[in-house]
Nucleic acid binder design. Structure first.
Length: 205
DNA sequence: CCCTGATTCGC
DNA sequence: GCGAATCAGG
């Protein structure tokens, strides 16, 4: 595979969108993430931070997903300087409930409301049969922005398999974030997928 | 261990 | 120019 114009464009686009090199490599196909990184450097667009700006020393920083208007026909537009806002909040969530069985809820349908619906109000999370802690839901919607947006074939043993969006549309993907030990979902999604039977009782707040 | 990006260097 | 190997870090 060679770096055709199109491929380079896609590379640029994805890179500026904050996609990781490995993701871009998968998308492009035929190249490794090393190849992508190498190309990125050669193109001189490595620094996602504005040139001249001092290094923040710590800024993994994921580009906030545009999320809105995924665009069916994205006119290739260059994204000048991606803003680098809030760092990822990392709340605390180790709710280790040793005993006590868990009630599992298969995410048959995604909790995403964003979907397409051009003229609809974004429907808030569905109240579902059992109540899920609002925090968990909040965390989920937040996580969706950081989701890796993996395709079905890209899921691995360690990528969150929570579906997001409508499978019938382009606006569909799997979370893809690192799963929680043993579980099929990432922390946030585990939070809504698995509910301790005792949650109602314990969670009184 | 999983993952990131950064660099090097033979091709 | 290319990218695997390697490095450095989370």
């Amino acid at each position: 595979m060679s770096w055709t114009d199109e491929r380079v464009e896609l590379l640029k686009k994805m890179w500026s969108e904050g996609q990781s090199a490995s993701q871009i490599a998968k998308e492009l196909g035929g190249v490794t993430r090393n190849a992508v990184i190498g190309k990125v450097h050669r193109l001189g667009l490595s620094n996602r931070t504005a040139p001249g700006a001092a290094e923040p020393a710590a800024a993994p920083a994921e580009e906030p997903a545009p999320q809105a208007a995924p665009a069916a026909a994205p006119a290739s537009r260059a994204r000048p300087a991606p803003a680098r806002p809030a760092p990822a909040p990392e709340p605390e969530t180790s709710r280790a409930e040793p005993e006590e069985s868990e009630a599992e809820e298969a995410p048959a349908m995604s909790p995403a409301r964003k979907a397409i619906i051009p003229a609809g109000q974004p429907l808030p999370p569905q109240p579902s049969a059992n109540e899920i802690s609002p925090e968990a839901l909040a965390k989920v919607s937040e996580v969706e922005k950081k989701s890796k947006r993996l395709g079905l074939m890209e899921l691995t043993e360690r990528t969150c398999k929570w579906p997001v969006g409508d499978p019938a549309t382009e606006d569909f993907w799997f979370c893809g974030l690192p799963v929680q030990q043993g579980k099929p979902y990432c922390e946030a999604h585990v939070g809504v997928a698995f509910q301790p039977m005792s949650s109602r009782r314990d969670r009184k707040r």
